[in-house]
Computed example of a mutant assay.
Amino acid sequence: MPHRLTYFALPLLTAFPLAASAEVPRVAVDIPPVYSLVATVMGDVGTPELFIQPGASPHGYSLRPSEASALDSADLVIWVSDSLTPWLEGPVEHLAGDAHHLELMDVPGITTLAYREEATFTLDEGQAHEREHGHDHAHAHAKSHDHQDHQDHQDHHGHHHSHTGTNPHAWLSPSNARQWLTAIADQLSDLDPDNAAAYRDNAAQGQDALIALEQQLQERLAHSADTRFIVFHDAYQYFEEAFNVQAAGAISIGDASAPSPARIEALQTLVNEENIQCVFSEPQFNPQMVNNVFGDTSAYLGVMDPLGVGLTLDAGLYAALLEQLAGEITRCTRAESA
C-alpha cells in the first residue's frame, strides 16, 4: 500500500537509506513517549502516527476521524496497555483487527510495579534501609514482568482499567524503555526484513543513549533522595524507583479520577504536619483544583507531566521528558532547602 513518508533529523540516530523494494509498515502508536521510542527505532526509514493527541489524557479519550483512520490503515499498532487506555480495546479490535499488535506491558522481562492505592505513600523497611545507606533501590523492589503473569492479571480483572493491580505508567522506567526498543525493532524487522538492520542498529544506539542519560540523571538527583512531594496521580512510581526519589502521596488514584474529600483532607494534613514542600499538578487536568486545595499551604505548586506535553514530537521526546521530570524534582529540592 503506497503512502507518503515524513522525514526528520534525529539527533541520536545514524541515517540509513530507504530500501526501494521495502514496503515500510504503517505504525500507529498511542502516546508521545511511545511515539518517541518507535521513531527512534524507525529512524529515517519511516515515521509512526500518533492516535492520541499530545496534551490529552490517555485514561479517557475519543478518537478523531483522522486518528481512527490511522488505526484502520495501520500494519502495526503499538500501545502501552489496555489498563492505561481501557477505551482503546474496541477501536483496536474493530479498526485494526488485521494489523499486528504490540502491547508493551506484555513484553517479557520488563519491570512492573503495583498501584499505590492510599492517598499517602510510605517507604517500606527495605526502601528506608537502602535510602539510609545511599543505595539505589530501583531494581531491589521491582519485579520482573512475566507474560503469563500479565495474562493472569488481565483474566482476573477482565482487562478493565483499575487503580488496583499493575501500574501501567511503565514508560517512565528507562530500563523498560530499553527493553521496548528491542521489542519494537523485532516487530518491525519481522514486517520489513529489508530494513531490519537499520531498525536493530537504531534500537541499539537508542539503548546506549538511554544508559548514559540514566546515569546522568541519577547523579543529578543524588541530592533529592530525601525530597518528598505530592503528585497529581500515581503515574511516577517507575521514575521514582529508577532515580531513588519518593513521592509522599497522590491527589488522585492511578486512573486520574476525581479525588474524594477524605483523600484531599489526608493530603492537606500531610502537607501541614510533615512540611511537604511541593505539590505538582498536570497539564492534562485543571490546575485550579490543586490551587484551591493547596494554595493556602506553604507548599510550592509546580507542574509535573508524564507524557511530555509541549515537547517536540520526535525521537528526542523521551529523553527530554525524563530530563523535564528530573528538573521539576531538583527545583522542589531547592525550594525545600531554601
Rank of each mutant, 00 (worst) to 15 (best):
V80Y: 01
A315F: 02
V279H: 10
S162G: 03
Y199Q: 05
P108M: 09
Q179N: 10
R228I: 02
Q151K: 06
D44M: 02
G302F: 11
G109L: 04
I251P: 00
G97H: 14
A242P: 14
C278F: 11
P108L: 10
A119T: 05
I264H: 06
D314Y: 08
A320M: 03
A204V: 13
S73K: 15
E328N: 13
H150D: 04
A28P: 03
P193Q: 03
A20V: 07
H233W: 09
I276A: 09
V92C: 06
A250K: 12
G90M: 08
R220L: 09
A320L: 04
H157E: 10
T182Y: 02
Q288M: 10
E118D: 15
T111G: 12
H101R: 15
Q216N: 12
Q288D: 09
T164Q: 12
S57R: 09
A242T: 15
T312D: 07
G295N: 08
R131Q: 14
T227K: 03
L210I: 11
A142V: 02
L217M: 12
P287W: 00
H223L: 13
L18V: 15
D106C: 02
D146I: 14
V245W: 11
S66F: 07
S81N: 07
A247C: 10
L217P: 04
A20W: 01
R131A: 02
H233F: 13
H156G: 04
N244V: 14
Y7V: 13
M304D: 00
C332M: 12
I276F: 04
S260D: 06
E67R: 07
T6W: 02
H161L: 01
D192I: 05
R131G: 00
R220D: 14
I230N: 06
V45W: 01
V38M: 05
W171K: 02
L172D: 07
S62H: 08
Y236I: 10
D305F: 03
H156S: 07
P259V: 09
N244Q: 14
L311Q: 08
P86S: 08
V293G: 01
L317Y: 03
P86Q: 07
Y35N: 01
S57Y: 01
I31G: 00
G249D: 09
A235G: 13
Q148M: 11
S298C: 01
D82E: 14
